[in-house]
Write a protein that binds this DNA or RNA. Sequence first.
DNA 1: ATTTGACCTCAACTATACTTGAGGTTGTTG
DNA 2: CAACAACCTCAAGTATAGTTGAGGTCAAAT
Lengths: 153, 153
Amino acid sequence: MNDVNREIRSHDLTPGEVARRAGVAVSALHFYEREGLITAIRTTGNQRRYHRDVLRRIAFVRVSQGVGVSLADIRAALATLPEGRTPTRADWTKLSRSWRADLDDRISRLERLRDTLDGCIGCGCLSMKSCQLANPGDLLSQYGTGAVRLQQG
Amino acid sequence: MNDVNREIRSHDLTPGEVARRAGVAVSALHFYEREGLITAIRTTGNQRRYHRDVLRRIAFVRVSQGVGVSLADIRAALATLPEGRTPTRADWTKLSRSWRADLDDRISRLERLRDTLDGCIGCGCLSMKSCQLANPGDLLSQYGTGAVRLQQG
DNA sequence: ATTTGACCTCAACTATACTTGAGGTTGTTG
DNA sequence: CAACAACCTCAAGTATAGTTGAGGTCAAAT
């Protein structure tokens, strides 16, 4: 977040390189920066240069999005990484672990959903009255329409 | 779709009733109608009246949305229901079954993702180069950012 | 030195899935 | 039959997650 004044090093990456290697558009990099998900330093000519860490951060963003986490929650997760120093392997592992808990959660909800649906297929219902699945305030609301929080604090 | 000329019966539901029982806002009913997900007939005074079937349709919509299917795909699925006659239990069962296949798919993708992540936690990676998860064109792209099609045709 | 591709900012546009508000009508109830 | 909740349409607004385009600059290769 605050490495804006860091000196540029030879192994820093240009926007194009990051875009190619991370598989996202340059416009997405700008967007992620505006959203506080990644940071860049600038050359004297005002062009962005990225630390290699940005690839990990983007990887984390994409993977998390892939399982349905919102950028807001991803930002919150990334904010737990240390500022000022390059995150260590342990920092990332901690992050991955918390994310994994969320994944387990999603899987079990989907499985419950599937099992309930099996019953629905058996009974041919899908009616609002009798079906666990379709009951608002029950399974559905637990599953939620919005993103599930990655962390509770 | 074409029951606009059907006569109104005493057990038809008002917008308010449907909204309450289905757990959605009246504005959402209007929206679903514009989007071709549900239909309504009109009283002489131009107010909507819904067949009880609409509750099943909305249930299907909500449950499908809950696992990440887009309205476009849900509309496609609902379009396979017979027009002209009230869908039978068998019709709905067929629909639920196709949907269940999609669910199984999602679960297995999430599980693969979790298993791969286990490896990542072990190695502390999440790097773009070595991590299966973060590799665009690999797992991520299979998982996709958009909605997974409910049906192939 | 010039060309060319990559880069810059900022505003506006896209898609999905709705909600909100204005201004007016209907239908039920005391 | 008056009141009032519930309904109507249509336009505009909201949030998320970006993309697109205009107009201009930077940097590497010839």
